[in-house]
Amino acid sequence: MAGRAVGVFAISVAAEMTSLQIQNLRVYERRGLVDPDRTAGGTRLYSEDDIDRLHRIRELLTAGLNLAGIAAVLELEVENARLREQVARLRAR
């Protein structure tokens, strides 16, 4: 679903959609937790996938994780999804 990965939401809209502060979204980007698209002028544009990731970050913050822990969890979740896809492909053979 390439459409979900295309940045369309300005930072203020993304903040409102996720109930997070704009400053926090900038911090999450600096920490590598989210990577929004940029316009030629440098404006951040968040995709639906980015919004989902921000919701997940908020959930993990609520659970008491710090940003380093969240980075580790998100990385493991991506790896887990990749491995599940690989297993599914191997089973389909």
Rank of each mutant, 00 (worst) to 15 (best):
L60G: 02
M1D: 13
I11S: 05
A71K: 02
R4T: 09
E77G: 03
R93F: 14
V78M: 11
V87R: 15
E85K: 07
N80Y: 11
V8C: 09
S47P: 04
E29W: 00
T43W: 11
Q23M: 01
I51R: 11
D49C: 09
R26H: 09
Q21A: 02
A71D: 09
R82P: 04
R89T: 07
V73I: 11
V78S: 11
L60C: 04
E29A: 02
H55F: 13
A63E: 15
R44Y: 04
E85A: 12
A92L: 12
G3R: 08
I70W: 04
R56T: 00
E59V: 08
S12N: 13
G42N: 04
E79K: 14
D50T: 03
Y46I: 11
R44A: 01
R56M: 02
Q23E: 13
A72Q: 14
E16L: 01
L74N: 06
S19G: 09
L45M: 11
G64S: 06
E59N: 12
S12A: 14
L74K: 00
E75M: 10
A5F: 01
L65I: 06
G3Y: 03
A10M: 13
G42R: 05
A81E: 15
R31I: 03
N24I: 02
A5Y: 06
R82Y: 08
Q86K: 15
R89M: 10
H55R: 14
L65Y: 05
N66L: 06
G69L: 09
V8Q: 01
N80E: 13
L25A: 03
I51P: 06
R91Q: 14
D50A: 11
L33R: 07
A68K: 15
L90V: 10
L67A: 03
L20D: 03
E48R: 14
L83S: 06
I51S: 06
L83W: 07
E75Y: 07
G69F: 11
L20V: 01
I22S: 02
S12E: 12
R30N: 09
R31E: 15
L33I: 03
H55V: 14
L25P: 03
D37L: 01
V8D: 02
Y28M: 05
H55E: 07
A63Q: 12
L65G: 01
L90F: 09
L45V: 06
D50G: 13
A5S: 13
N66V: 06
R82I: 11
L54T: 05
I51C: 10
I11A: 03
A5L: 14
V6I: 08
R93C: 12
V73E: 13
L60P: 00
T43V: 12
D35F: 14
L61A: 03
E75S: 11
E79H: 13
E48L: 14
E59G: 09
G42W: 06
I11Q: 05
V73C: 10
E75K: 09
F9T: 02
R91E: 15
A5T: 13
